[in-house]
């Protein structure tokens, strides 16, 4: 009998130790990184309960296992068998029913926290999200502009209406604790209430091709005042962009070009647009070509005809752009010097 008492005490001690160990690396009370949405609170609460149960069940098995290994070892040279105990039906029933109860309680709390995460605010602000290989584009429909950065006001529920232009992507902001796939052919919804100002990143969580790792766009949560100022700024930019190059910049953002082609010389998935126009471009087949209007137009329409050295073919998707739109984008590229 005293074996059971010792093991019982050890299980309790071990549970506390395991919990403290997980807490020591900062992962017991909440997940990492910092929580930045009202919904994240429920996720972290659920996680905290899970860590307690995990600590207990881990100890419940490992402690008697290790205890047996130490105290019920066969001594050297001993050839005797153990006690002939074939089982105990009452025990088996007990350890079937008890976990069943735990499981049902847990599933209930899981459903409860999910319900809280999905709670709808009728005044939620709508933002349209377009995902494509390998960038995100955000459309603010009530103001009519596009942005490659997602700006959100703090403490205001937003609902993102998300569509994909090509393959499956997944919208994830680790600080928000929520994830939702973006599926071609349908609109999926992501509802969030940011509650901590700061700069984060929208990261694609569903493998979407070569540059999946780099499908990250900036996300900024600001005060309502700063958010309003940013919106006014974007509206002004959109209004000023009636020129061909201005239109070209809008098109380059709304079509996601800027996700792969930088405007400042940085090497992303595709060649940079900085100082591109008029330059000599080395091609994969060893020749070079001059980046004139004809070359740029051809490369936008059919990117695989002339592949730039150091960049793989068959990466850039097809776009349905009119000739005028293409010439506007080229006009914008010309300005990048």
């Amino acid at each position: 009998m005293y074996h059971f008492v010792i093991v019982g005490v050890l299980v309790i001690l071990m549970t506390i130790l395991t919990y403290m160990g997980i807490d020591a690396v900062g992962l017991a009370r909440h997940m990492n990184p910092v929580s930045a949405s009202a919904q994240a609170v429920f996720v972290d609460q659920m996680w905290h309960w899970e860590i307690w149960v995990i600590s207990f069940l881990f100890s419940l098995i490992v402690v008697p296992l290790v205890y047996s290994l130490i105290f019920f070892r066969q001594k050297k040279g001993e050839m005797k068998d153990g006690e002939h105990v074939e089982g105990n039906t009452q025990l088996e029933i007990a350890w079937t029913i008890m976990p069943l109860i735990i499981v049902v309680i847990f599933a209930y709390f899981g459903a409860y926290t999910l319900g809280e995460e999905r709670r709808v605010d009728p005044n939620a602000m709508v933002i349209n999200v377009k995902a494509q290989q390998f960038t995100w584009t955000f459309e603010y429909p009530q103001y009519g502009f596009f942005s490659s950065e997602l700006h959100l006001p703090v403490d205001q529920q937003v609902v993102l209406k998300m569509e994909s232009a090509d393959v499956i992507h997944s919208f994830w902001v680790p600080e928000f604790r929520l994830k939702q796939d973006v599926v071609p052919g349908r609109t999926t919804e992501y509802r969030i209430t940011p509650d901590l100002e700061g700069s984060y990143k929208v990261r694609c969580a569903e493998l979407c091709g070569t540059s999946h790792a780099y499908m990250e766009n900036p996300l900024v949560v600001t005060s309502q005042a700063d958010y309003d100022a940013w919106v006014q700024e974007q509206i002004a930019i959109a209004a000023a962009s009636k020129t061909p190059e201005g239109q070209g910049k809008v098109l380059a953002t709304s079509n996601g070009c800027v996700g792969c082609h930088s405007a400042d010389g940085t090497k992303l998935t595709g060649p940079t647009w900085f100082d591109l126009f008029g330059s000599e471009v080395p091609l994969a087949d060893g020749t070079t070509t001059t980046a004139d209007e004809a070359y740029l137009a051809e490369s936008i329409k059919d990117p695989n005809v002339k592949v730039v050295e150091g960049f793989p073919a068959n990466v850039m998707p097809a776009f349905s752009l009119t000739d005028e739109e293409i010439s506007n984008i080229i006009a914008y590229i010309k300005t990048l010097k």
Partner: peptide, 23 residues
């Protein structure tokens, strides 16, 4: 979560097998 129940039966039974054995 129901999968946990038959899996749990295995774990508990293994530990009980080792209890007071000659390991």
């Amino acid at each position: 979560l129901l999968v946990a129940i038959p899996t749990g039966v295995k774990f508990f039974s293994w530990v009980a097998t080792m209890w007071k054995g000659k390991i």
